[in-house]
């Protein structure tokens, strides 16, 4: 491991605030990834579904996941913008 990378890791470890921010960022990105997978899976299910009631239910769920993703992306970019402003 390069010295710079090692120092960055040590810096993170010793500064809990920065690490906490980093963990939050990473967690939000992970959840967004999972939501994207879920959205794709729901879309596949919807494409195959023929029953009208089931289709409506899947469509609703898809809209919810889409809204959640939109909200999450907004939060993530806001969080990253803030940390950039703080110079970390």
């Amino acid at each position: 491991m390069k010295l710079k990378k090692l120092l960055k890791k040590l810096n993170f470890f010793l500064h809990a605030d920065k690490q906490l921010q980093h963990d939050k960022d990473e967690a939000l990105a992970n959840v967004l990834k999972k939501l994207k997978k879920k959205e794709m899976k729901l879309q596949e299910e919807l494409d195959l579904e023929t029953d009208e009631i089931e289709r409506k239910f899947l469509e609703q769920e898809l809209k919810i996941v889409h809204s959640q993703r939109e909200k999450g992306i907004g939060l993530l970019s806001e969080m990253r913008g803030r940390s950039r402003e703080n110079g970390s």
Binding site: L35, Q60, S67, G72
Partner: peptide
């Protein structure tokens, strides 16, 4: 733990659910 917090942050509020419903 951080992912649980992230999920709570993303979870939709009542008015956001209502917007999805209205759109629907």
């Amino acid at each position: 733990k951080a992912e649980t917090e992230a999920e709570h942050m993303i979870a939709l509020e009542d008015h956001e659910i209502s917007s999805v419903l209205e759109e629907d």
